[in-house]
Amino acid sequence: MNIFKTISAIFAWVFAWVVFCLPATVLAQNATGQGWREGQEQIQGDTMVVAAYMALWLILLLFVLRIASRQRTLKADILELKKKIQKEEQ
């Protein structure tokens, strides 16, 4: 694995961790009274916010996985094409 892939993987991991866990962490702080200074405390609202943000990132993640799957297929096709061209040249 080259350095770019390693950095990308670390970046993606940190991104996924923060994006999936930030709303839940902040709302947990809110529930224990250490987070929000303004507004009202609504447990059901908290659940809704976590659900909405989870759904958002999950849909985005599925789309990114689909793109990655297509990229793999494309790479396999390019490899096959290269082999075919080499065969033709011989």
């Binding site: 923060v18 994006v19 930030l22 709303p23 902040v26 709302l27 809110n30 929000w36 303004e38 507004g39 009202q40 405390e41 609504q42 609202g45 908290d46 809704m48 916010v49 909405a52 943000y53």
Partner: peptide, 20 residues
């Protein structure tokens, strides 16, 4: 995300759900 959860205040009428 930081701005939504740490900078923007909680809306008075709807509460935390407004963050959606």
């Amino acid at each position: 995300l930081y701005a939504v959860f740490f900078i923007a205040p909680v809306e008075a009428t709807m509460g935390i759900v407004q963050k959606i």
